[in-house]
């Protein structure tokens, strides 16, 4: 990261099948690694946005730039082509998005849990908005009680 002149560009993809071609074009332009790969859950509109930030180590002129790709996915069955062949640094981050949000990356070489225990979290995705922690549930009930005029 050189200096504080970071310019951010965004690109929004509606159809997940277009992602590899977009990634290939970006790689040819010099964006050679994935900085972060995460996701945002939108339960109301029933979609998950895959957020990919890419940047460059090799090309000096685009080094301060961070390019953001957003991919709209269906929340019920989120599937997207894997980017490991284009950017190898995406491998572990794709595995994290897989366990936390349940996004399936097609043609990923080794798609299994990276941080969470596979026995405890099989079919459960803790970073989705509908996942409720038991302790948090108690806190929410307390907050509602306070809103409704305290303990009756």
């Amino acid at each position: 990261m050189s200096g504080d002149s970071q310019v951010k560009a965004e690109f929004f993809i509606e159809n997940p099948a277009e992602l590899p071609s977009v990634a290939q074009t970006l790689k040819e332009k010099g964006y050679d690694h994935v900085i972060s790969l995460s996701a945002v859950d939108y339960p109301k509109s029933n979609e998950i946005h895959l957020v990919i930030h890419v940047s460059s180590y090799t090309k000096k002129d685009i080094e301060p730039k961070i390019f953001e790709i957003r991919v709209k996915l269906n929340r019920d069955n989120p599937r997207v082509p894997s980017l490991v062949k284009i950017w190898p640094s995406a491998e572990f981050q794709e595995r994290e998005a897989y366990e936390m949000f349940g996004i399936v990356f097609e043609n990923h070489p080794d798609l299994r849990n990276i941080l969470l225990d596979p026995e405890e979290f099989s079919g459960v995705h803790p970073l989705r908005k509908d996942y409720i922690v038991q302790v948090e549930d108690i806190m929410l009930k307390l907050k509602e009680e306070v809103k409704n005029g305290g303990n009756k």
Binding site: L116, P126, Y131, V133, V135, E136, M139
Partner: peptide, 10 residues
């Protein structure tokens, strides 16, 4: 009691 992670999933 979990400390700062009291409402964590893990």
């Amino acid at each position: 009691d979990g400390g700062i992670f009291h409402n964590s999933y893990n």
